[in-house]
Lab assay of single mutants.
Amino acid sequence: MALNTPQITPTKKITVRAIGEELPRGDYQRCPQCDMLFSLPEINSHQSAYCPRCQAKIRDGRDWSLTRLAAMAFTMLLLMPFAWGEPLLHIWLLGIRIDANVMQGIWQMTKQGDAITGSMVFFCVIGAPLILVTSIAYLWFGNRLGMNLRPVLLMLERLKEWVMLDIYLVGIGVASIKVQDYAHIQAGVGLFSFVALVILTTVTLSHLNVEELWERFYPQRPATRRDEKLRVCLGCHFTGYPDQRGRCPRCHIPLRLRRRHSLQKCWAALLASIVLLLPANLLPISIIYLNGGRQEDTILSGIMSLASSNIAVAGIVFIASILVPFTKVIVMFTLLLSIHFKCQQGLRTRILLLRMVTWIGRWSMLDLFVISLTMSLINRDQILAFTMGPAAFYFGAAVILTILAVEWLDSRLLWDAHESGNARFDD
Results as ranks from 00 to 15, higher is better:
23 L>H: 08
128 A>P: 02
376 S>M: 12
319 I>V: 15
385 A>T: 07
327 T>W: 13
99 D>I: 04
376 S>Y: 02
128 A>D: 02
157 E>R: 14
358 T>A: 14
343 C>R: 13
58 I>T: 05
396 G>M: 02
322 I>T: 03
212 E>T: 15
271 L>H: 08
72 M>T: 08
356 M>I: 09
371 I>G: 01
135 S>R: 00
98 I>M: 02
99 D>M: 09
408 W>G: 06
361 G>H: 04
270 L>A: 11
106 I>A: 03
3 L>I: 08
121 V>C: 08
333 F>N: 11
177 I>M: 13
303 I>Q: 03
138 Y>I: 08
207 H>F: 15
216 R>P: 06
361 G>V: 05
225 R>F: 14
244 Q>N: 14
104 Q>Y: 04
297 D>E: 02
351 I>M: 13
370 V>D: 00
39 S>G: 12
19 I>L: 09
60 D>G: 09
327 T>Y: 12
382 Q>T: 07
393 F>N: 06
261 H>W: 06
31 C>P: 00
133 V>H: 03
280 A>S: 13
426 D>C: 04
157 E>M: 09
187 A>F: 13
250 R>A: 15
256 R>Y: 11
13 K>A: 06
330 I>M: 13
106 I>F: 07
305 S>P: 02
389 G>Y: 00
400 I>F: 03
246 G>N: 12
312 A>D: 08
73 A>P: 03
271 L>A: 12
196 A>K: 03
301 S>A: 04
4 N>E: 09
234 L>V: 11
287 I>M: 09
91 I>R: 00
122 F>H: 15
106 I>D: 01
100 A>R: 01
172 I>F: 07
357 V>N: 12
221 R>D: 13
377 L>C: 02
57 K>T: 05
307 A>P: 02
84 W>H: 07
45 S>P: 07
204 T>I: 05
382 Q>D: 03
117 T>Q: 02
334 T>C: 13
138 Y>P: 02
324 V>W: 15
322 I>M: 11
243 D>C: 09
18 A>K: 07
306 L>V: 03
315 G>Y: 15
179 V>Q: 01
238 F>T: 09
40 L>S: 08
371 I>W: 01
329 V>D: 04
248 C>L: 00
367 D>H: 00
94 L>G: 01
146 G>Y: 04
300 L>V: 09
410 D>S: 00
365 M>R: 00
210 V>W: 10
269 A>M: 04
143 N>W: 14
279 P>C: 15
411 S>A: 10
22 E>Q: 10
71 A>V: 10
203 V>S: 14
350 R>F: 13
393 F>P: 09
173 G>M: 09
339 I>H: 09
108 Q>L: 15
82 F>P: 02
385 A>P: 00
49 A>W: 10
342 K>E: 11
144 R>C: 09
196 A>D: 09
151 P>Y: 03
381 D>M: 02
120 M>D: 02
208 L>R: 14
418 H>T: 08
212 E>D: 10
59 R>K: 06
162 W>V: 02
401 L>A: 12
246 G>W: 11
319 I>D: 14
118 G>S: 09
43 I>S: 06
34 C>T: 00
5 T>M: 12
425 F>H: 11
65 S>Y: 03
227 D>I: 15
218 Y>D: 10
317 V>Y: 02
333 F>A: 10
365 M>P: 00
318 F>R: 00
255 L>I: 08
220 Q>G: 07
83 A>P: 05
132 L>K: 05
25 R>L: 07
253 I>R: 02
73 A>S: 07
242 P>M: 13
141 F>V: 15
331 V>A: 15
254 P>A: 05
209 N>M: 11
411 S>C: 08
281 N>T: 11
88 L>R: 00
218 Y>K: 11
359 W>Y: 11
103 M>N: 03
278 L>P: 03
143 N>Q: 10
283 L>W: 03
177 I>V: 06
188 G>F: 04
260 R>A: 08
306 L>F: 02
392 A>F: 03
10 P>Y: 07
185 I>N: 03
30 R>Y: 03
283 L>T: 13
386 F>K: 00
367 D>G: 00
277 L>C: 11
394 Y>G: 05
37 L>V: 07
140 W>G: 13
160 K>W: 04
206 S>P: 12
4 N>H: 07
329 V>Q: 11
57 K>W: 03
190 G>I: 02
81 P>A: 05
28 Y>L: 10
305 S>I: 09
222 P>W: 11
98 I>Y: 03
312 A>M: 13
238 F>N: 09
143 N>C: 15
211 E>M: 15
281 N>Y: 04
275 V>H: 07
88 L>G: 04
89 L>E: 07
123 F>W: 08
95 G>E: 01
396 G>C: 03
266 C>E: 04
102 V>F: 10
363 W>A: 03
408 W>F: 13
217 F>T: 15
112 Q>H: 08
147 M>S: 06
101 N>P: 05
384 L>F: 07
410 D>W: 00
10 P>Q: 07
35 D>G: 04
329 V>L: 10
375 M>W: 02
177 I>N: 04
130 L>Y: 07
427 D>C: 10
240 G>P: 08
26 G>L: 08
135 S>T: 02
153 L>E: 00
152 V>W: 02
148 N>G: 11
408 W>V: 06
